[in-house]
Amino acid sequence: MNPVAYTGRAALSILAEIGAISIFALRGAFAWVSGPFYTREFITAAQRIGFNSLPVVGLTAIFTGAALALNIYDGSARFNAETFLPQILAVSIVRELGPGFAALMVAGRSSSGMAAELGAMRVSDQIDAMSTLAVDPFKYLISPRILATTIMLPFIVLVADIIGILGGWLVAVYALDFEGATYIRNIDAFLTTEDVTSGLVKAGVFGFLISVMGCYYGYKSRGGAQGVGGATRSAVVASAVAILASNYIMTSLFVDF
């Protein structure tokens, strides 16, 4: 094929996809406004996404914090700044790594889960069946998942922040001879509210993106088991890209205040 035509076609299809996802996201986010709001679905989704993600997010956070402590110590020792380890570690975690890693883990867990579940429902006609039973699938399936993920992710990130800082503390105190109370006191004196809240705002946006991708690719999936597999893969890849791209955009906005 003509390479120019190929490039053009690919660009157009990407733009069309972004447009379709945006419309889907708006519809999904606001479908519940005109009622009914399916509370039970919302609570189930919140529990699955929020509570059940905690073990894997906690593990990720503790190892990230621990490794980060070693790296910061090693790097900052080159210009005798190793005493700032707690502050640098805390800022890195609450602003960047806590939200980022937690979101990527939840994307791997929940975005794929939503895509697979909705995809299986789609290919077995369950979504069409729902429409014929006078229930809007956007209200019953999509809105509760988007709302639950958007609301729960900041809480997950808050837990990840705490565990990540704890991971750094363990390494600092037991391997690098820091004094435990001073480590905490230094972070407490240094960290601002904005450091934490900016990370939590990011988390909310990541949660929205993760659930939109999971729901979109699941809802649109076609063609049996292979289609559902493809939907799951697309959901995870798209979530990860959306998280990292939006992270840069939000960071560049936040560092200006």
Binding site: M121, S124, D125, Q126, D128, A129, M130, T132
Partner: peptide
Amino acid sequence: MLFQGAALF
């Protein structure tokens, strides 16, 4: 509507 594969939830 009765779907071909029953389409039960």
